Simulated scan of single mutants.
Amino acid sequence: IIRTDHLTINLVMKDENEEHNFQLFRECLSTPLIEKSSIAPTKKARKARAGRKTAIKPISASTEEPDDAAELADFIDYVATEIFTNLPPELQTLTYSTWLNTPSLQSQYSIPVPQDTISKLINTLPLAITDTLTTYSILTPTKTTLEFLTPVLTSYLETLTTAPPAAAQLRAKATECEICLREWVPLTFHHLIPRAVHAKALKRGWHTEDRLESVAWLCRACHSFVHRVASHEELARDWFTVERLMEREDVRRFGEWVGRVRWKAT
Rank of each mutant, 00 (worst) to 15 (best):
P114T: 03
T134E: 04
Y156G: 01
S107E: 13
E147M: 09
T117R: 15
L105Y: 13
L149G: 04
P151Y: 04
D131A: 14
Q108E: 13
T135N: 11
S107M: 12
Q115G: 10
L146R: 03
T140H: 09
D116Y: 14
D116C: 08
L153N: 03
T150Q: 09
P114D: 11
T154A: 10
L121S: 09
T132W: 00
S119R: 15
S107D: 13
T124G: 01
T154E: 14
I138P: 03
T135P: 00
N123S: 15
L133E: 03
I138A: 01
L146N: 00
T124Q: 14
T150E: 10
P126K: 13
I122M: 08
I118K: 08
S137G: 00
V152Y: 03
I122L: 10
I129Y: 07
T145N: 10
T142C: 02
L125P: 05
L125E: 07
T134R: 08
I122H: 06
L139M: 06
T140D: 07
F148C: 01
T117K: 15
I129M: 05
K143Q: 10
T135A: 12
T135D: 09
L146E: 01
I111H: 12
S104E: 15
D131Y: 12
P103D: 07
D131P: 01
S137D: 03
E147S: 07
Q115L: 14
P114I: 07
